[in-house]
Amino acid sequence: MDIIFGQALFLLICFILSFSIILTTTRSRRSSRKVAPLPPGPPRLPIIGNIHLVGKNPHQSFADLSKTYGPIMSLKFGSLNTVVVTSPEAAREVLRTHDQILSSRCSTNSIRFINHHAVSVVWLHPSSPRWRLLRKLSATQLFSPQRIEATKALRVNKVKELVSFMSESSEREEAVDISRATFITALNIISNILFSVDLGSYDSKKSNLFQDAVTGVMESIGKPDAANYFPFLGFLDLQGNRKTLKVCSEKLFRVFRGFIDAKGTEKSSRNNPKDVSDRDFVDALLDHNEGDVSRAQH
């Protein structure tokens, strides 16, 4: 039975590799006819392209390669064509001069699995109406000079809480996890701006669970994933990134839904509208949604 299973597995792998070679070769021939020539780059191996040239420190690998192939070079990671920019002058062209053309971001396999690329300001294309709406709300409700000034006292108080926690821990001669402590400070600043509540506590285990969920989301997005380079492998979830992201994002969404539902209930039971200076980001979103409903009814 083991021999039969091993043979079947071997044949499956051979089939996938053969299919990949044929598909890659066909696409490369088609692209060579239609697409403009790419910048210079290192020779590519079949199937994997230049993946073998990028080690644990990609920035160092890219810097070394740029000494040979110049400040603008092309690399191929599986089926993904990539242009790497390594000089300040070229980066200025990409980030400032041609930012509108080059500002879209390719979503990862794990992000597409939870459909986050269709709703998040991080992954939406800048030309989409939803992205423009979220950008407008963020600019007015989070990053405007008035809002930054209005939250100054909040930021100062949260930093004072951090200093107080550090001092008390020092007096008790207790070790402090600086990463965790600064995370909780940043978390409480952001959660107060968004929800008007503290989501973390220096002494609570709940904040650890929340931090683990946030860290899990970040790792599953940034962790190497074979499906990002070979899309036909996406359903296998070889690195487990889709599973991790699904579990961690569901934990975060439950927390956020709780706050949003509570805000909605508070808003519906309140007779007088909240003062603008007292509103947080969720208040602004609820007001915007109410406005859309009202306009639709009329």
Score class of each variant (00 low, 15 high):
Glu290Ile: 02
Arg30Thr: 06
Arg270Ile: 15
Asn115Trp: 00
Val84Asp: 00
Val293Glu: 13
Arg30Glu: 06
Gly41Val: 05
Ser110Gln: 03
Leu286Asn: 02
Leu236Ala: 15
Lys136Asn: 06
Met73Ile: 14
Ser294Thr: 14
Pro58Val: 04
Arg29Pro: 03
Phe19Leu: 13
Leu102Gly: 06
Gly55Phe: 07
Thr215Ile: 09
Ser120Glu: 03
Lys246Tyr: 01
His59Met: 13
Leu11Ile: 11
Ala90Phe: 03
Gln146Lys: 12
Leu80Cys: 05
Pro43Ala: 05
Ser74Cys: 05
Arg33Thr: 11
Asn289Ala: 15
Arg27Trp: 11
Arg254Glu: 14
Arg132His: 09
Thr25Gln: 09
Glu250Asn: 15
Asp237Thr: 07
Phe165Thr: 02
Phe113Gln: 02
Leu233Ile: 01
Thr185Trp: 12
Lys251Gln: 14
Ser18Val: 13
Glu171Ile: 11
Val163His: 08
Ala181Lys: 01
Ile189Met: 11
Lys136Asp: 03
Thr151Cys: 09
Asn157Lys: 13
Ile72Gln: 00
Ser20Arg: 04
Val85Leu: 11
Leu95Met: 12
Arg254Val: 07
Leu286Lys: 01
Pro231Val: 03
Leu17Glu: 07
Asp212Arg: 10
Pro43Ser: 09
Gly291Thr: 05
Leu17Asn: 05
Lys56Ser: 09
Ala139His: 05
Gln239Pro: 04
Ala91Met: 13
Trp131His: 07
Val84Asn: 01
Ala227Phe: 00
Arg29Trp: 10
Ala150Trp: 00
Lys243Thr: 08
Phe62Pro: 04
Ser28Gln: 10
Ser144Phe: 01
Ser277Gly: 07
Gly216Ala: 08
Leu124Asp: 00
Ser104Val: 09
Asp275Pro: 06
Leu133Cys: 10
Val159Gln: 11
Leu45Asp: 11
Leu45Lys: 06
Ser127Lys: 10
Asn272Val: 10
Leu38Ser: 00
Val121Ile: 15
Glu266Trp: 05
Arg257Thr: 15
Ala175Thr: 15
Arg242Cys: 01
Ala186Lys: 04
Thr68Leu: 06
Ala153Gln: 14
Leu45Ile: 08
Arg295Trp: 03
Val84Tyr: 02
Ile148Leu: 14
His98Val: 04
Val217Phe: 04
Pro273Ile: 14
Arg105Ile: 07
Gly200Lys: 02
Ser196Thr: 13
Phe259Cys: 09
Gln141Phe: 03
Phe259Arg: 05
